[in-house]
């Protein structure tokens, strides 16, 4: 049988075989058990939960599986934790090709191995044809954080610098192109990746205040969260904000603002201005870090996010109103 049927979710033989032949083969045997024990470890246990829906399920630079691993790992990494374990629940639409499911499971296994995390538990449900988007993945992640690492927006103060580890808007634009919507095509790749190396390097820098991954809502949304939480103004500098030319071009054409598009392999760090240059050098020295930049600073003033344009003008970057690209992450 080459496609998922409702029987693959009924708890019986088909499901057992699917778990054995796809998930346990790709992730290891422990996913067959309903519950799993984890070894004792030092530090603070950090837990995260995330759901993944994306259209299309496979796109240049990744797929829903690698996205689920990177998204979960990144949420742990930006909190200062080292990701260790993950659980995955698959909600599969009847009729989904098992080959494709296996391809996505292999992608998950590869991404997990790269990030040093183990898939320790899972679940499978099947929904009737027409009642799901092919495949949804619900994930949880568990990591360990050293007790002396304490990041948070409370530590942010006037003068602090904002950095990003590479060009913004790639994922949102790549997924849009992959849908071949509006007759557009291009060879842009999603930036979907683990930010763990960047996060670990940043944690080692004294003066690091806070990190966040700019996924849904993009860099402008992270800046707005910082501004609202701290009560300070955040000024972003268009001259240093890294945006690839194709991203800029496609956004111009369709009326999107790349500052609001999702990234899946980027991290924003807020750091003591005296250490910003140090962090920039470290980040630029990492693989895929050559596009890192200091992109703005925290200022006294009303809690708003303002973009200083190339010409020296100012543009307010407000909270997102409509969803510019539904279902991209």
């Amino acid at each position: 049988m080459s496609r998922i049927t409702l029987a693959h979710g009924n708890g019986g033989r088909f499901m057992r075989e699917l778990v054995r032949d796809v998930f346990a083969r790709r992730f290891g045997g422990s996913v067959i058990d309903d519950a799993v024990g984890l070894p004792p470890a030092d530090g603070i246990v950090v837990v995260t939960a995330d759901g993944f829906i994306v259209d299309p399920l496979e796109f240049p630079g990744g797929d829903i599986g690698s996205l689920a691993v990177h998204g979960t790992v990144n949420d742990l990494a930006v909190s200062g934790a080292v990701p260790r374990w993950m659980t995955l629940s698959f909600i599969i639409e009847e009729g989904f090709k098992i080959d494709r499911l296996d391809r996505i499971a292999a992608s998950i296994a590869r991404a997990a191995a790269d990030c040093g995390v183990t898939i320790v538990a899972g679940d499978t449900k099947v929904v009737p044809n027409g009642q799901g988007g092919g495949l949804y993945i619900a994930a949880s992640g568990i990591g360990m954080r050293p007790v002396d690492v304490a990041l948070g927006m409370k530590a942010i103060t006037v003068g602090d610098c904002l950095l990003v580890n590479g060009p913004v808007g790639d994922h949102g634009t790549a997924v849009l192109l992959a849908r071949q919507a509006f007759g557009l095509r291009g060879d842009l790749r999603s930036d979907s990746a683990s930010v763990l190396p960047f996060a670990r390097a940043a944690v080692a820098i004294p003066g690091l205040r806070f990190m966040r991954d700019p996924t849904r809502g993009g860099i402008a949304t992270v800046a707005n969260e910082i501004s609202q939480e701290t009560g300070f103004r955040v000024l972003l500098d268009e001259r240093t904000l890294p945006i690839r030319e194709p991203v800029r071009g496609i956004c111009d054409m369709l009326g999107y603002d790349p500052l609001y598009l999702a990234c899946e392999g980027r991290v924003v760090a807020v750091v003591d201005p005296a250490r910003a240059a140090d962090l920039l050098v470290v980040w630029r020295g990492l693989p895929n870090g050559e596009g890192a930049a200091i992109i703005g600073r925290v200022e006294a003033g009303r809690p708003r996010v303002v973009l200083r344009t190339v010409l020296g003008g100012e543009r307010l970057l407000d909270e997102l109103e409509d969803d510019p690209l539904p279902r991209i992450c």
């Binding site: 009326g255 603002d257 973009l307 344009t309 190339v310 010409l311 020296g312 003008g313 100012e314 543009r315």
Partner: peptide, 12 residues
């Protein structure tokens, strides 16, 4: 008008 707004031209 979009370009004028995006570049913040009125402010400069």
């Amino acid at each position: 008008e979009r370009t004028i707004g995006m570049a913040g031209l009125r402010g400069v």
